[in-house]
Simulated assay, not measured.
Amino acid sequence: MNAQLAAPAYAARQGDVARDRDAVLSIWRGNLGEDAHMPAKYAWFYQQADAGPPLLELLTADGLEVGACSAGRRRMLRDGKPLRAGVLVDLAVLPEHRSLGPALMLQQGLAATARNELDLLYGFPNPKAVPVFKRIGYRPLGDLVRYVRVLRHGRYFARRLPQWLAYPAGMLADLFLRLRDALSHPDTALLHADWSESTDSRVQALWVRSTKPDGIVAVRDQAHLTWRFDRSPQRGFRFLLLSGADGSLLAWFATRLQDGILHVHDYWSLHGPAVGTRHIAALLRAAREAGHAAVSIELATAPIYLAPWQELGFVARGKRPIFGCWSAQTGGEVPTALHFTAADEDE
């Protein structure tokens, strides 16, 4: 009669970004994204981050590394004061060890470390992971909502209309909305719009001059944007820079094109997250001129900052919850305001 195999002895330990690189990449292999992309991601996110190396937690089974998760450090402000934040990323466990107990042990270890080194640890769990997040001590912060504005309606009408009718009708809708936008926001013509492949010193000057809102918001200085977009292994980010008559930067949008849709991953303006309708109208005009079918943005923000996007026709198309875990020193209360974009994730 075969003896029953003993269950592995699991343990969680703090990792070291330099020492444990090979172990982490081995855990990721076949379990987290495209294998060929992983070394470049590790170099960028773990070894070059502007806020310092992430917190790294490893799960061992009988002394062998079988799981990993991390918290990427983020420089943020809370009501204008520095906040040490971290975004939960890259949870991976080898298939033979994927059960609730080991995964919970791994995340509990990371959360315990984070409570000593960070003010806030946040993440974007999928629906199945929400009960686990709550059990560890995470609480809802808000929802990251995806908003979309269609610019070229032909392919969207084709889902409901015959093709011979969909595309002519789409062209008429496109023309009508383009004229409406131009007539509703004539001051857009006073803005000078430039596409740039990278950040420049004007971005830093804008951050210094800009209004910082109440609640939680990421630091958007040149150092962060250079790391987050210019050096990202995900190529294709472009900045739309909007300037006034004197050449000073008034607003920027960090974008990336995928499948004909221009995704706005981040933005900022002289008034902080309170970007004006004329700036958004300039973004739409630039996207139209480039031939893009739609513009999308993911936002978790106060209604006053969302209103200009809705006024320009952006419609909600899905959402994801944001959960956070506060350290004891912060008091643990949920803030009244939150301004997150897709850039507040890991990639």
Rank of each mutant, 00 (worst) to 15 (best):
residue 160 R to N: 07
residue 329 Q to R: 15
residue 137 G to H: 12
residue 189 A to V: 07
residue 329 Q to M: 09
residue 23 A to V: 15
residue 16 D to Y: 02
residue 159 R to I: 01
residue 199 T to L: 00
residue 236 G to H: 00
residue 48 Q to I: 00
residue 139 R to F: 03
residue 180 R to W: 04
residue 149 R to M: 03
residue 186 P to F: 12
residue 88 L to I: 02
residue 131 P to F: 06
residue 179 L to I: 09
residue 127 P to G: 02
residue 235 R to D: 08
residue 124 F to S: 02
residue 253 F to R: 02
residue 223 A to I: 07
residue 154 G to C: 04
residue 336 T to W: 00
residue 41 K to V: 06
residue 181 D to T: 04
residue 290 A to Q: 15
residue 258 Q to D: 14
residue 147 Y to P: 05
residue 254 A to P: 00
residue 339 H to N: 10
residue 228 R to S: 08
residue 109 G to E: 06
residue 211 T to S: 13
residue 285 R to G: 07
residue 264 V to Y: 00
residue 258 Q to L: 11
residue 320 R to Q: 14
residue 72 G to I: 04
residue 241 L to W: 03
residue 187 D to T: 13
residue 90 D to T: 12
residue 317 R to W: 01
residue 191 L to S: 05
residue 294 A to E: 07
residue 251 A to E: 05
residue 133 F to G: 01
residue 86 G to H: 04
residue 207 W to L: 09
residue 200 D to R: 11
residue 80 G to V: 08
residue 235 R to M: 01
residue 198 S to G: 14
residue 33 G to V: 11
residue 213 P to K: 05
residue 69 C to S: 08
residue 190 L to S: 11
residue 219 V to W: 06
residue 257 L to R: 14
residue 236 G to V: 03
residue 326 W to A: 08
residue 321 P to R: 10
residue 206 L to R: 09
residue 244 G to A: 12
residue 341 T to K: 10
residue 165 L to S: 07
residue 30 G to A: 11
residue 236 G to D: 02
residue 68 A to P: 01
residue 269 S to N: 12
residue 61 A to I: 08
residue 187 D to F: 01
residue 62 D to R: 13
residue 161 L to F: 14
residue 248 S to C: 11
residue 276 G to Q: 15
residue 48 Q to S: 14
residue 121 L to G: 06
residue 207 W to P: 09
residue 202 R to Q: 15
residue 312 L to S: 00
residue 269 S to F: 06
residue 163 Q to H: 10
residue 302 A to W: 13
residue 181 D to K: 01
residue 15 G to I: 01
residue 163 Q to I: 09
residue 272 G to D: 02
residue 22 D to S: 15
residue 179 L to F: 03
residue 159 R to T: 02
residue 235 R to K: 14
residue 9 A to T: 14
residue 207 W to V: 05
residue 302 A to R: 10
residue 14 Q to Y: 03
residue 136 I to T: 14
residue 1 M to S: 12
residue 177 L to M: 14
residue 192 H to V: 04
residue 214 D to P: 03
residue 65 E to I: 00
residue 122 Y to I: 00
residue 21 R to N: 08
residue 222 Q to R: 15
residue 60 T to A: 08
residue 3 A to M: 11
residue 329 Q to G: 07
residue 265 H to M: 01
residue 206 L to A: 06
residue 174 D to M: 07
residue 116 N to E: 15
residue 281 A to H: 05
residue 164 W to P: 06
residue 38 M to D: 12
residue 223 A to G: 05
residue 163 Q to L: 08
residue 163 Q to C: 05
residue 162 P to T: 10
residue 347 E to A: 11
residue 39 P to G: 05
residue 99 S to M: 13
residue 115 R to Q: 15
residue 58 L to R: 07
residue 312 L to K: 00
residue 189 A to I: 01
residue 156 Y to T: 04
residue 149 R to A: 13
residue 243 S to Q: 14
residue 160 R to V: 06
residue 159 R to W: 07
residue 285 R to L: 09
residue 23 A to S: 14
residue 299 L to Q: 09
residue 260 G to L: 03
residue 1 M to V: 05
residue 308 P to K: 13
residue 229 F to W: 12
residue 88 L to N: 13
residue 86 G to M: 04
residue 39 P to D: 04
residue 137 G to D: 13
residue 144 L to N: 06
residue 274 A to H: 15
